[in-house]
């Protein structure tokens, strides 16, 4: 059949095919180059000492343990705030809300939140949490700002997974006389759990990769913070991995360490993407 095509059509087909393969090729080459270059310059610098050590000018050692801890802090606190809000909102929208207008308004708001660039979140964090709520430049202020930023991610993924729970489950439970919340808690939420987990992993990924917000709201200190009491936890202020990368690359021109941190971030990204995919796969399996 191919042979019978007019020359012009054959040219069109070959051209189109070339275009598609070329575009996909460019994407792959780009990614492989970025990964390869980062590993090439960063892997030699990654060591157990770097991961678990603290930097010391007096002893001449480097270490990013404080930044790892700060990153973990920000992930935990921002999720602790955004998860109940986002999941709660999604539950209300799918299970309770009767007014289509309310659902539309909330979904529209979530879309707007998702579209706001992070530099604007940085400004908001500075005005709202650092200044108006007097949190100063702290990890707490940064985490709360990020909580707003990841709210739409959690809201949307929870909503998606709640929708996959069959109607019959709900009706069965309600028919047996349980209250609506009781039904949601015992029937809907357990079956939607992996969707919510996926949302959390995606949100954690966004938090790990975020830099602008944290640089302006959470501080840039790379020394170990004191997490021994609630008060100190609230006053702790420091750089997460991305912010530390920026500090090393831009403020200290220490590219060896910057690329080492970049390598670690790269592996974290791979890990997060992989687990998100795994969670999503489990979700799909259940759907079938």
């Amino acid at each position: 059949m191919r042979a019978s095509l007019a020359p012009r059509r054959r040219l069109y087909n070959t051209g189109a095919k070339l275009l598609l393969w070329l575009s996909a090729g460019i994407c792959c080459v780009l990614l492989l180059f970025v990964i390869g270059y980062i590993c090439y310059r960063g892997l030699p610098g990654v060591s157990w000492e770097l991961l678990t050590g603290q930097e010391s000018i007096l002893q001449g050692t480097a270490g990013i343990f404080p930044s790892l801890v700060n990153t973990l802090y920000v992930i935990i606190v921002s999720l602790a705030v955004a998860l109940p809000l986002g999941a709660g909102a999604a539950i209300y929208l799918t299970e309770y809300a009767k007014s289509r207008r309310l659902v539309n308004a909330v979904e529209f708001a979530a879309d707007i939140l998702a579209g706001i660039p992070s530099i604007l979140y940085a400004l908001i964090g500075v005005i709202l949490f650092c200044t108006a709520l007097r949190l100063q430049k702290t990890l707490l202020a940064g985490s709360l700002t990020l909580a707003i930023m990841i709210l739409p991610t959690i809201l949307r993924t929870t909503q998606e997974s709640l929708r996959t729970v069959p109607r019959s489950y709900r009706e069965g439970s309600l028919g047996l006389g349980s209250g609506q919340w009781h039904m949601i808690r015992t029937v809907v939420l357990p079956s939607a759990a992996d969707g919510i987990v996926t949302g959390c992993i995606l949100a954690a990924g966004r938090v790990t990769g975020e830099s602008a917000v944290l640089m302006y709201t959470a501080g840039l200190s790379t020394v170990m913070q004191d997490f021994s009491s609630i008060e100190n936890i609230m006053k702790a202020s420091g750089a997460t991995l991305t912010a530390a990368l920026y500090v090393y690359a831009k403020e200290r021109a220490d590219f060896a360490e910057a690329f080492a941190v970049a390598t670690i971030l790269l592996f974290l990204t791979i890990l997060i993407n992989f687990s998100a995919e795994l969670a999503a796969k489990r979700l799909h399996k259940r759907k079938k």
């Binding site: 994407c27 990614l31 970025v34 990769g209 830099s211 990368l245 690359a249 970049a262 790269l266 992989f274």
Partner: peptide, 20 residues
């Protein structure tokens, strides 16, 4: 094979792109 690679491209933090 390519799809997860695109996902990775999306997940790489912007400061890393800046650094490269």
């Amino acid at each position: 094979l390519i799809r997860p690679m695109i996902g990775l491209l999306a997940g790489i933090p912007s400061v890393v792109y800046g650094l490269v």
